[in-house]
């Protein structure tokens, strides 16, 4: 049988291509161009080869902010994923309280990022903020504008407050998709609570949890506004994570070459992580 081939549908892809070209490809090309040159402004550029890449890769400042970034991302993942699953398990499965819980959970997600930063900034102030004042009243010396540990504690708890809900909602959706028959079978076999979780709920949540980890990893890896508003990377440089360091280099010091090289390395890291998660998800789908 002769098949009619009609490739006109490819033209439908054109708008997307144009959009991606303007908001991703062209800016990215520009960053690549900047990363191999030195500029003193006024669109005057001098070719420098891979000098900036070598400099960034050997700079302690970059290593430190990368380490801080991994510490931040690792910590919030270690807290948010288990906490989100626990809350999702504790949420009612039917009845009046379901929508109430869902709306309550969705609330933090609706707050704009800079507002979250400003809120927690005030909340954690040692003299007038409720949290900062209470902690100090307990006899613990807490001042996030001066002590690195307090600053880290505030940044992490802020992110946990803002984003655990996302994990909860995803995990809850995963739980809701488990048919009752599974639970009935578990009851017949008199399975323990742990066995139900380990062999029914966790495998069924695997896919959504992969998505949750991916989303939280990417978001936390690119997070800027909240920690910037809260601590501005301080005290000193102690909470300067990658994105804050990058903006400092690009806009604070106007080191376009170094900032561009940093951006590309940063981009390659996110690209690799995306690919790994994507492959893991595709593999999970096959199984």
């Amino acid at each position: 049988m002769n098949k009619t081939w009609n490739n006109k549908a490819w033209f439908m892809v054109l708008p997307v291509l144009l959009l991606v070209a303007f908001n991703a490809v062209i800016p990215l090309m520009t960053v690549v161009n900047y990363s191999v040159q030195e500029t003193f402004g006024n669109n005057l550029f001098f070719f420098e080869g891979v000098k900036w890449f070598r400099e960034v890769l050997h700079s302690d400042r970059f290593h430190d902010s990368l380490l801080r970034q991994f510490f931040f991302t690792g910590t919030i993942l270690a807290i948010e994923i288990p906490l989100g699953v626990i809350i999702a398990l504790a949420m009612p499965r039917q009845g009046f309280w379901v929508p109430v819980c869902l709306v309550l959970m969705a609330l933090p997600l609706l707050v704009p990022w800079n507002v979250v930063g400003a809120m927690w900034n005030i909340f954690a102030l040692p003299d007038i903020g409720l949290m900062g004042y209470s902690i100090n009243a307990l006899g613990i010396d807490f001042n996030f504008t001066r002590q690195p540990a307090s600053a880290w504690f505030t940044v992490i708890i802020m992110d946990v407050w803002h984003w655990t809900s996302l994990v909860v909602l995803l995990a809850y959706a995963g739980l809701r998709s488990i048919p009752d028959a599974y639970y009935q079978a578990a009851r017949i076999d008199s399975a323990s609570r742990w066995a139900v979780f380990r062999y029914i709920q966790l495998p069924k949540m695997k896919r959504v949890l992969t998505i949750a980890v991916l989303l939280r990893f990417m978001d936390s890896f690119m997070i800027y506004t909240e920690p910037f508003v809260l601590t501005g990377g301080g005290p000193g440089n102690t909470t300067t994570i990658l994105s804050i360091d990058l903006v400092k280099a690009a806009l604070g010091e106007f080191n376009l070459g170094i900032a561009a090289a940093m951006s590309i390395i940063y981009f390659l890291m996110t690209l690799l992580v995306c690919w790994v998660f994507y492959s893991a998800m595709m593999r999970g789908e096959d199984e």
Partner: peptide, 15 residues
């Protein structure tokens, strides 16, 4: 396109 700061090296890379 001066703001894009093209060099022949990067142009050949993308090409």
């Amino acid at each position: 396109l001066t703001w894009m700061a093209w060099t022949w090296q990067t142009a050949s890379f993308f090409a």
